[in-house]
């Protein structure tokens, strides 16, 4: 996670954008039974531009979608029969296509929503590697842990402020990041308490 000073926290690194777009397409289809899905956006078939805007408003504040990603995704969904072109409208430039989800698309989204995400074990932690390298090269590992701790808390303060100014959706997004950062901090604390033992193992 990028935590450099002054850098906006990136909360969407793990967001599967492809499926976010699919969900918005689901909402856009008037002929689909949406009773098993949370209601959120409009109910009309959508243009690529509308999908991008809906995604950015809800999920992409710190990392908006590129138009290229939206159209590449729609083209892939179209090819796989998960969306269809609902209509074409002339615009100022090229004609604009409206997309709607197909029954196969609805099934695909339902399957994706029902499938748990794979938990990430973080076994190749950069922080762990830095601590070990510091110990191996005789550098102050405790200082490294302290400065990392301060940087984590700086970001947590920023997210807490952002949460207090935000709506419920914003609060939930920030909470997700805050809990992960807190887990990192607990690891930093535990590692600091075990630093002497780790130094012995590394030097053995």
């Amino acid at each position: 996670m990028g935590t450099g000073a002054g850098q906006e926290p990136d909360l969407s690194l793990t967001t599967p954008r492809l499926y976010i777009v699919r969900i918005d397409v689901v909402y856009s289809a008037p002929h689909v039974d949406r009773t098993d899905l949370p209601r959120a956006a409009g109910v009309q078939p959508r243009h690529g531009y509308d999908l991008k805007r809906a995604y950015d408003e809800r999920f992409g504040r710190s990392r908006p979608l590129h138009f290229g990603q939206v159209y590449a995704t729609l083209s892939r969904l179209l090819k796989n029969g998960l969306v269809e072109v609902d209509g074409v409208e002339p615009g100022g430039g090229p004609d604009r296509k409206r997309y709607a989800i197909t029954d196969a698309g609805v099934t695909d989204v339902s399957r994706w929503l029902a499938q748990p995400e794979k938990p990430e074990p973080y076994l190749q932690s950069t922080l762990y590697a830095k601590v070990v390298l510091a110990l191996m090269t005789g550098r102050p590992a405790a200082d490294l842990l302290d400065s990392q701790r301060a940087e984590h808390l700086r970001l947590m303060r920023e997210l807490t402020r952002r949460k207090s100014d935000g709506d419920l959706a914003e609060q939930l997004i920030c909470d997700h990041a805050l809990f992960h950062l807190e887990a990192d901090l607990r690891w930093l604390e535990l590692t600091a308490a075990r630093l002497d033992d780790l130094a012995k193992e590394v030097s053995a």
């Binding site: 301060a150 997210l159 807190e182 901090l185």
Partner: peptide, 16 residues
């Protein structure tokens, strides 16, 4: 001892 609580502060002091 909770980081999420400490995040409401302006700065932190660590005691060890």
């Amino acid at each position: 001892h909770e980081a999420r609580v400490a995040a409401y502060s302006d700065r932190e002091i660590v005691v060890r």
